[in-house]
Amino acid sequence: MVEVLTGTFTVKAGQAQMLKGGVIMDVVNAEQAKIAAEAGAVAVMALERVPADIRADGGVARMSDPSMICEIMDAVSIPVMAKVRIGHFVEAQILESLGVDYIDESEVLTPADELHHIWKQDFKVPFVCGCRNLGEALRRISEGAAMIRTKGEAGTGDVVEAVRHMRSVQDSIRKLQTMPDDEMVVEARDLQVSLDLLTKTREMGRMPVVNFAAGGVATPADAALMMQLGADGVFVGSGVFKSGDPARRAYAIVQAVTHYNDPKILAEVSKGLGEAMVGISVKSLPDEELLAARSR
């Protein structure tokens, strides 16, 4: 008998590795999903409202209607992701049964559990989780996340928080590179992570799983900025479909992520994109409206 293994961490993390150098776009219907795929998105995130609208509407934001997610799964051949509330493992069970390709346990939705995240190791479907720093990232990986993204500040079109979070992660990893063995225990304690995982991170010299940027990316330049800061790829939430010409902007951001180190190409793809999403400066938001602070 040949042993066939499914749902292993290798295939979960491996799917994220195939998304590297790509753009994952938020879409709210099959039509938008097709535009995203046509523009060269590596995956789409199916949700009822993009973060900018969730922010504007207020109230409780939950998992999307399964029928809408299925419509999107039928419309495109690229991977389809969908969001569940932090700690809401039943929403995750439902999405897994639909056959979504990746679940985002997301602070953009209203958390269902303020203490515990989902125990993701028990699922066959892989999870991506947000982080503000290395400690949050490694805790999510311990729980079973196979991919990490910065939280940024979703639905603002302001990249400042994504930059802060990416720099924080990279800075912590650089610090590990020169850290003597006898300081690792205290570092693990301070970050509230296991020594094993921290040691592995030091050995790898990078986040142990694929690490995308998310939360506030609105332009090709924003996307390239995040790539130059060390992101493996980029999520664009409200930035595409809240702009004047979504198809064109989507196409431009895809090219910007591939050619993130080539300013001439970046200049070319940035031309004539029309209106970017209006945006909200994160500084103008009161603390209670900050989504990134919703989990630790």
Partner: peptide, 25 residues
């Protein structure tokens, strides 16, 4: 879909007698 991605050892004659651990995503 992704939940059907799998790992399996394969016989690859040109690589010798040891099976090759193949990852299908």
């Amino acid at each position: 879909r992704q939940v059907d991605s799998f790992e399996q050892a394969l016989n690859v004659t040109i690589l010798g007698p040891d099976l090759f651990h193949a990852i299908f995503i």
